[in-house]
Nucleic acid binder design. Structure first.
Length: 1050
RNA sequence: GGGCGAUUAGCUCAGUCGGUUAGAGCGCUUCUCUGAUAAGGAAGAGGUCCCUGGUUCGAAUCCAGGAUCGCCCA
């Protein structure tokens, strides 16, 4: 006999298998072929959010990459053309920091000394330091993406497209330069990004002075009187020299108050202070007297004398040194009146913008006062704190000064406390297109859904202008040129730059671009580029067109791939790439650049702790891949939970998945191959239900149809988890019910059984191809040697028609089996011992179902006969319960009375009525109500002294009395069992024929003779001898000795 | 401090439209079955469905408040 399939190793190592599949994919060019097959098909567009390859990829990258993989694979199988271009994010501070660390640099000055050209060259190298690791991992986990043709944000072509975008935005008058308050290190003279503020150790506890200062009112408003003092609180006395205004909350209650213990200590018991009512006692001390109460809005516009006179109020504009309303003011701490120094706080700055205050910043970038602060000019601001406080005290302006301990951000490189500091930066006026951003977001299908109007939507609603520029080196240069007159021009491409300057850039990066100058079109003066580079998020947000170098070329390619149908990143990208993609495309094209998003959650360790190098709990992907394989890890990510909920990473769960799913599938496949080969059964065409006569075959095909339908429906909705779990449930049904119940048909070479099982397995490999591409391909190729050269070239399965009546029937039959097995367990009689009968209680549809599948039930329970009792109450007492689900809506509040009325009915009478489909009358408050069969549930109660298992409306009882015939048949089965054990011990193949020799107790030999045909048939014995008293292996059956010897028959 | 999410068995997770005995897998104990399986089957132990209040005839499910954890932001 020929062997249609390669033998299957039941001890197969999955990691080793995957390596061999990878080698074949490489050799056969399978991935490109899957795309070539779809040329001309409708496109389904995927955008790769570019990672940075300057660090080793971690397990969270595997998560993102397998989710980026599964849906493109699925859509390809569904007939779409899914181009998958990889990408690399190359610019930005993380790259610079890595290089700085490598070179031992501590500040920007070090970089400037080293040379920008040399520094950027190092950055360029460093970006791809781990490129090989990324490539290897990407391939190893089966992420199909084109890395050979990946876009790179550092390429000139990419930068040119970004320039085009910026110029377009500038032409729409949405690009501007303005001040922004940023964390600034006065030692390194550099802005720190929020990323750097997040570095460990950035926030440290420090003790700062905490001062309460009075500002005398000069021009009152509302209930104020001249000489009243507006009381403010600050922990940064050095900012008082540039006080511009104070802020109060419009609705908060303020008071004029006098006296109090603290005021007395300061010798200010006669001064009238103005502050929030809630804080009077805390600030002024016990015994303060409230003179008047009023809302903050009442004193808006009042003018006061600032704590220091260095900068006149007029310098800030008409609202300088007046009371303003601010929405950030609270009565939680301080005084409820907030000292505002526009240049040194974000709230302050926003307030200044709101009221049109002019920014005056008398602090130099090195943290010293400039000449405007007379006595203090040249002094370090923090060092001046103490003198400033003394100055205030001497002039009677200080109410109180104390120490205040709090967490304060520091420069993570040099440890200097940061200051918040207004600096000029370039912005994109995204707030102006806020409504368009919201409209664009409405067109996006988010997974999970709550992100759309929650985290992301809320954030869009509070949109502030995009701070675009960075005073750094390694990034896309901001293409803004400016002359000394302040005229600006934005360059949108290299041709344009060449036309104006005569210079063609070989490398668009700094410092080369910094040297390019041209005459101003308006005044003729020399224009040079501003020094900044741009935020890397603008780079990646530009990828829809920049990856193609559009619009400078490839416009059709861009249009063909815009917008994306699918993007997928971790949840932290809501404010990162998801935003920058949306913002850039809304700015340029007034629409979203993606239609569907999947957000991925965080991966924690098994204890729920964040993975970090310092904790040493970081999971290295290679270790998992070597131990369990990529399919196992993928399956874990796809099916263990919804990906946005995050993961508690657990090797135990992965290994459980290998055992519970991959091995189960593998062994079912191995079973098929073993017996198909043994019987010489070549692959047959996929059967349809009407070609099959066996109910198990038809049932499993129907279940398969259901599974296909669920998988497609869920994958269409980007729900890999439910889809995968449905496939797993099917594989379990296939293995633990279909194959288990059908084994004999496989031994017997039943062609329908082989055709059915093979069709199920092949379809499963197609269903699984996007999930576990390795094992799916391996199984597919061996089961369908004449089919496609890879499962990944197949179409995704189409759902076959269901037979829901049969599915229902099988459900009932399996339930009957479950009850019967439970009764078996209770009876202590081995399953191998045949019994005369099982008595099944079931009525109507359920009885028909079990009768239809009686053979399956009999066989599984090992009974000769199934008997049905028509009346449920023959085997147990019936209990009648109201069906709340049906009756609740009908009776509402009267439900408790209905329940009582039902309980009062005669159960046997009701059960009979329900069986016969008659209605039952109950009386409620003098009214008759008819209850139909669907309104009542009958449940069996166990009857004392009767052995049965029951559940709901049916039950199974076993007839336990054994006669001699049954006992002898049981012995025969024990004999077979012993001989099978001997076969196995002799290491025989399942299809080997044997010469059998038995010996031992006479009763056993007699049974063997009686059942010789059965015994030899079951054990593939061609001959039997009964003289084996001293031969072979010893067994004991029912206390009787048995010896069995088997040898392979010639 | 704000936004978003989560909380169900020892662990990992389901739980549909609100329906009255809340499920699965793993793990544990006991038994059982086996010409594929590291498997399968049965029984047992294991639950304050985070808490409090509300809506409802009825709440794990809906509403409000709170607690804890996580993420993002300030």
């Amino acid at each position: 006999m020929s062997a249609p399939h390669r033998p299957v190793d039941s001890q197969q190592s999955f990691p080793a298998l995957e390596e061999s599949v990878l080698a074949r994919w490489r050799e056969d060019d399978v991935f490109p072929e899957t795309i070539r097959r779809r040329v001309g098909a409708p496109p389904w567009v995927f955008y790769e959010g570019p990672p940075t390859a300057n660090g080793r990829p971690g397990v969270h990258h595997v998560l993102a990459r397998v989710f980026k993989d599964i849906f493109p694979r699925y859509k390809t199988m569904r007939g779409y053309r899914v181009d998958r271009r990889g990408g690399w994010d190359c610019h930005g501070l993380p790259v610079e920091l890595a290089v700085e660390a490598q070179l031992g640099f501590e500040s920007k000055a070090d970089i400037e000394r080293y040379g920008i050209a040399e520094f950027n060259a190092k950055c360029r190298e460093s970006v791809f330091a781990y490129l090989e690791d990324w490539r290897r991992l990407t391939e190893r986990i089966g992420y199909w993406v084109d890395l050979d043709d990946a876009y790179r944000t550092l390429d000139n072509s990419y930068i040119e497209s970004v320039w085009w975008a910026l110029k377009t935005i500038w032409e729409k008058d949405l690009l501007y330069e303005s001040y922004k308050v940023v964390p600034h290190c006065p030692r390194d003279e550099v802005t720190l990004s929020s990323h750097e503020l997040g570095q460990p150790g950035a926030y440290r506890d420090v003790v700062d002075p905490s001062v309460y200062v009075g500002y005398p009112v000069t021009e009152p408003a509302g209930p104020l009187a001249p000489g009243d003092e507006l009381l403010i609180w600050t922990t940064t006395p050095w900012t008082l020299v540039s006080n511009a205004a104070v802020a109060v909350d419009a609705e908060l209650t303020y008071v004029r108050a006098r006296g109090g213990a603290h005021a007395a200590e300061a010798g200010a018991q006669e001064t009238v202070f103005v502050l929030a009512e809630a804080l009077v006692e805390r600030v002024l001390g016990a015994g303060a007297e409230v003179l008047e109460r009023f809302p903050g809005a009442a004193i808006e516009g009042a003018r006061y004398a600032p704590p220091f006179d260095y900068i006149p109020g007029s310098a800030y504009g008409p609202r300088g040194h007046t009371v303003l309303l601010g929405d950030f003011v609270t009565a939680d701490d301080g005084t409820g009146i907030v000292h505002t120094a526009i240049a040194f706080g974000e709230d302050d700055f926003r307030l200044g913008e709101q009221y049109g205050l002019t920014v005056v910043n008398p602090v130099r970038p090195d943290g010293t006062y400039d000449e405007r602060i007379g006595d203090y000019a040249g002094r370090n601001i923090r060092a001046a704190n103490a003198d400033l406080i003394e100055d205030l005290r001497a002039r009677g302006r200080l109410l109180r000064a104390e120490d205040y301990e709090h967490a304060y951000p520091h420069c993570w490189r040099c440890g200097t406390p940061l200051i918040y500091y207004a600096k000029p930066s370039w912005y994109i006026r995204t707030s102006q297109i806020r409504d368009r951003l919201l409209a664009a977001n409405e067109t996006v299908n988010w997974h999970p859904e709550h992100v759309k109007h929650g985290r992301f939507g809320h954030w869009l609603e509070g949109n502030v202008d995009w701070a675009l520029s960075r005073e750094r080196y390694w990034g896309t240069p901001l293409p803004v040129w400016r002359c000394e007159q302040g005229h600006t021009h934005v360059i949108g491409g290299f041709d344009e730059l060449e036309e104006r300057s005569g210079v063609r850039l070989d490398d668009a990066h700094r410092p080369y671009v910094d040297d390019v100058a041209f005459p101003c079109a308006r005044c003729g003066q020399r224009m040079t580029r501003v020094p900044e580079v741009i935020d890397v998020w603008f780079d990646s947000g530009s990828m829809p067109f920049a990856q193609w170098h559009a619009p400078h070329e490839n416009v059709a390619l861009f249009e063909d791939h815009f917008p994306a149908d699918y993007v997928c990143e971790a949840l932290d990208q809501t404010r990162g790439w998801f935003y920058s993609l949306l913002a850039v495309s809304t700015l340029l094209f007034d629409r979203s650049s993606y239609r569907n998003v999947v957000c991925l959650g965080l991966i924690l360790d098994g204890e729920g702790q964040k993975m970090s190098k310092s904790r040493g709990n970081v999971v290295v992907p290679d270790e998992i891949l070597d131990r369990f394989g990529a399919d196992a890890l993928r399956w874990y990510f796809f099916t263990s939970k919804q990906p946005w909920d995050g993961y508690r990473f657990s090797e135990e769960t992965i290994s459980e998945m290998v055992r519970q799913f991959l091995l189960q599938l593998w062994n079912t496949y191995g079973f098929y191959v073993l017996y198909a080969n043994a019987n010489g059964i070549a692959p047959q065409p996929a059967p349809t239900s009407d070609q099959l006569s066996n109910d198990l075959d038809r049932w499993v095909l129907s279940r398969l149809g259901e599974t296909v339908a669920i998988a497609r429906d869920r994958l269409d909705d980007y729900d890999a988890t439910t889809a995968g779990r449905a496939i797993q449930t099917f594989v379990d049904d296939l293995s633990n019910w279909y194959v288990r119940r059908s084994r004999r048909r496989f031994w017997d070479g039943d062609r329908d059984a082989f055709a059915t099982l093979r069709h199920c397995l092949v379809t499963v490999t197609q269903l699984l191809a996007p999930f576990t591409p390795f094992v799916a391909d391996e199984i597919y190729r061996n089961l369908d040697p004449d089919g496609e050269s890879s499962v990944h070239l197949c179409d995704y399965p189409e759902p076959a028609p269901r037979d829901e009546a049969l599915e229902f029937a099988m459900g009932v039959a399996r339930e009957a089996v479950r009850l019967g097995l439970a009764a078996r367990g209770a009876s202590k009689l081995k399953l191998r011992q045949p019994l005369r009968a099982a008595v099944v209680t079931a009525t109507g549809r359920e009885r028909e179902a079990i009768e239809r599948l009686a053979e399956v039930v009999r066989d599984e329970l090992n009974v000769k006969e199934l008997r049905f009792v028509s009346a449920a109450d023959e085997l147990g007492q019936v209990e009648v319960k109201p069906n709340y689900r049906a009756l609740g809506p009908r009776f509402g509040k009267k439900m408790p009375k209905v329940a009582l009325a039902v309980a009062a009915l005669d159960p046997a009478h009701v059960a009979a009525a329900v069986r016969e489909g008659r209605t039952i009358a109950i009386v409620l408050d003098g009214h008759d109500h008819q209850l139909g069969p669907e309104d009542l549930l009958t449940v069996l109660k166990p009857l004392d002294g009767y052995q049965l298992e029951r559940e709901g409306s049916h039950a199974v009882a076993l007839e336990l009395t054994l006669d001699d015939e049954l006992r002898r048949e049981g012995l025969a089965r024990e004999l077979v069992h012993a001989i099978q054990a001997a076969r196995k011990a002799a290491g025989l193949d399942v299809s080997d024929r044997i010469a059998l020799t038995v010996g031992g107790a006479e009763e056993l030999l007699a049974v063997t003779r009686e059942y010789e045909a059965y015994v030899t048939g079951e054990t593939l014995a061609t001959t039997v001898r009964y003289d084996g008293a001293g031969a072979g292996q010893a067994f004991e059956i029912d206390g009787l000795p048995l010896r069995v010897a088997v040898v392979r028959a010639g």
